[in-house]
Design a protein around this nucleic acid. Structure first.
Lengths: 159, 159
DNA sequence: ACGTTTAATTAGAATGATTATAATTTAATA
DNA sequence: TATTAAATTATAATCATTCTAATTAAACGT
């Protein structure tokens, strides 16, 4: 619904309004994120994609930008237990309202675009006096398609 | 209900029955885990504790033992997004039936000793054709006690 | 109990992801 | 346009974890 350019503009404004500068490196990084909204890219993945269009950029800059965007809650930093942090844009509409299915055969990560936890968050509040501001729900298992051997990539790293 | 010695014996038997050897280093490591059942220790934490009683042990051995125990499903390897893997014993009674509350003020991790996800796992199966073998549910937020400033340790690492 | 075999341990080096540093550049603002 | 502080660059450093080669020790059969 919202174009890449519009989203980019909005992100830049949020940066500036918080006192951060809008640079071409940050813009390039955000653009890559916008074009791979739900790809669960590692910092290295993002770096490589940014580099194809902006070869002078440094890896550290990408790391710092991703960190900044995480602080601003514009991207979500995730961790699937393989030792690499992964980053996704948080589009306004589905904030952190999604969960993951992680295939233990091929490592593929798919999303569930729903928030199934509202009730449980209430319960945590009631029973434990814990105010939930965020959550993470990952299911580990196998897709029926993977069980039958027709997996995309075959897995090289264990959780 | 089960004594440390009994649990240790059972763990050793499981090792041997799977073709692995029972060594004093592994025993020392398991003993530490048994004595810190739900402490979410990092490999380094475990190493330091083992080392007080068995100073000749190497860090790599602890890592390898934790990895082995994870494979045997005797310990659970977790990841709270701070870049360090954490390990807990899986006592027979509550397998992986627990969730975490992670305080964003002090970093403390507390457990919910319940499985709230059975229904959701059915739903994942039905709606996505994904067979769940395990899951992870973490709530991020604040304990009421922490909001009032009386926190144990103050936080130095962000998620 | 003893030797053989093979896995496990050790110390230390290597790796891979991430973060810090110091010098240089650039965006924002007057 | 000049100033100033923040951002970037390249590179070194760090941290967690894994690998390697040489040595030690469990398990098993005799």
């Amino acid at each position: 619904m919202v174009s890449v350019e519009e989203q980019l503009k909005s992100m830049k404004q949020q940066m500036i309004s918080k006192g951060y500068k809008s640079t071409i490196q940050r813009e390039a990084t955000m653009r890559v994120l916008l074009e791979h909204e739900r790809d669960h890219m590692s910092a290295e993945d993002v770096y490589m994609r940014v580099k194809t269009r902006f070869p002078e950029i440094g890896l550290a800059t990408v790391y710092r930008t991703l960190e900044l965007l995480t602080e601003l809650h514009l991207v979500e930093k995730m961790n699937f237990g393989d030792g690499v942090a992964r980053f996704d844009l948080r589009s306004e509409d589905h904030e952190h309202m999604h969960h993951h299915m992680i295939c233990s055969i091929c490592g593929e990560v798919e999303e569930i675009q729903d928030d199934w936890l509202s009730e449980l968050e209430q319960r945590v509040k009631r029973e434990y006096g814990f105010n939930v501001s965020d959550h993470r729900l990952d299911f580990i298992g196998t897709f029926s398609s993977c069980k039958h051997g027709d997996c995309h990539r075959h897995r090289e790293n264990a959780s």
